[in-house]
C-alpha cells in the first residue's frame, strides 16, 4: 500500500507539487492523469527519492519513506520504472533485469528465487527473451519500455510506479504495453500509473486522480471518471 499526504516537491526554489494527497490500496491499480507539466513525473520522482520532497509524508505500507535516498526506498520495496525508460544502454538485456534484483542479490532484501523471476520476466515479455544477450541501448523504444518494466518487477516490489509507459511508442506497441499492465493487475501487483494517454489508463485502472498545476482536482473510480464531463473535455478529447 502507498499513502501520500501533503506532498510538496519541486526543483530548486520552484515548487511543482503543492500538497498532494493520494492513496494506492494494496492490489489496486491507480492512475494519475493530467496534462504536460501538471507534475505527474515530479510526483513519482518525489515518491521514489529521485528528488527530495520539501514537505509531506510518503507511507510505503507502514514505513514513512519521504526524504530517504532512492536506493533505500528501493530496498524497502518500491520499484520505479522511470520516464524515458532509463535502461542501462551498455549492458545486456539480461544484466539489466539482473540489476533490477540487485537488492535481493546482495541480501538487503528477501532473496526469493531470482532466476525463476528472470524466467518469468522472459515469459511475460517474449521479445526480451529473444534479445537476452543484446545490449539494451540497441533495443527499439517498445522493447526498452518492456525492459524497464521487467527490470522494475525484478525487485519483487510491494508497490510499482510506472511513468508514461506509452510515451513515444507506436500504437501497436502502446496496446502491447497496456496488455502487460493489465496482466500485472491480474496478478494483484500494487501499481501507480502515470499516463498522458488518459483513455487507456482509465480503461485499465481501478481508481484515478487528475492532477492540475500540482494539485489533485478530481478523483474517483476510473470507470466514473471516464464518463465525467470535465475529464472527458480536458483529457479524453471530448468524445
Amino acid at each position: 500500500m502507498l499513502k501520500i499526504t501533503g506532498l510538496q516537491a519541486g526543483y530548486g526554489k520552484v515548487l511543482v507539487l503543492h500538497g498532494l494527497d493520494l492513496v494506492v490500496p494494496r492490489g489496486n491499480l491507480v492512475t494519475l492523469i493530467g496534462s504536460n507539466g501538471a507534475g505527474k513525473t515530479t510526483t513519482l520522482r518525489a515518491i521514489s527519492g529521485m528528488i527530495k520532497p520539501q514537505a509531506g509524508q510518503v507511507f510505503l505500507d507502514d514505513q514513512d519513506i519521504a526524504g530517504k535516498p532512492s536506493h533505500k526506498i528501493a530496498r524497502a520495496g518500491l520499484a520505479h520504472s522511470p520516464e524515458g525508460r532509463r535502461v542501462f544502454a551498455t549492458l545486456s538485456v539480461e544484466d539489466n533485469l539482473t540489476l533490477g534484483a540487485f537488492s535481493r542479490l546482495i541480501g538487503v532484501r528477501a532473496k526469493g528465487d531470482v532466476s525463476a523471476d528472470l524466467d518469468r520476466a522472459f515469459v511475460m515479455f517474449p521479445r526480451l527473451a529473444e534479445r537476452r544477450k543484446q545490449l539494451a541501448g540497441t533495443l527499439s523504444g517498445g522493447e526498452q519500455q518492456m525492459l524497464a518494466i521487467g527490470r522494475a518487477l525484478m525487485l519483487n516490489p510491494s508497490v510499482l510506479l510506472l511513468d508514461e509507459p506509452s510515451m513515444g511508442l507506436a500504437p501497436l506497441l502502446v496496446a502491447e504495453v497496456f496488455r502487460a499492465i493489465a496482466n500485472l493487475k491480474a496478478q494483484s501487483i500494487t501499481m501507480l500509473l502515470v499516463e498522458q494517454f488518459a483513455a487507456a489508463a482509465l480503461e485499465v485502472a481501478d481508481y484515478a486522480y487528475v492532477l492540475e498545476n500540482g494539485r489533485i482536482t478530481i478523483s474517483g473510480k476510473a470507470a466514473d471518471l471516464k464518463n465525467d464531463p470535465a475529464v472527458k473535455a480536458a483529457y479524453l478529447g471530448g468524445h
Partner: peptide, 16 residues
C-alpha cells in the same frame, strides 16, 4: 557499470 550508465536509474535499482 550501471552507475556509470545512469546514476539516478542505478539508485532506483537499490544501488547505493
Amino acid at each position: 557499470v550501471a552507475t556509470a550508465n545512469d546514476s539516478d536509474a542505478a539508485g532506483l535499482m537499490g544501488i547505493n
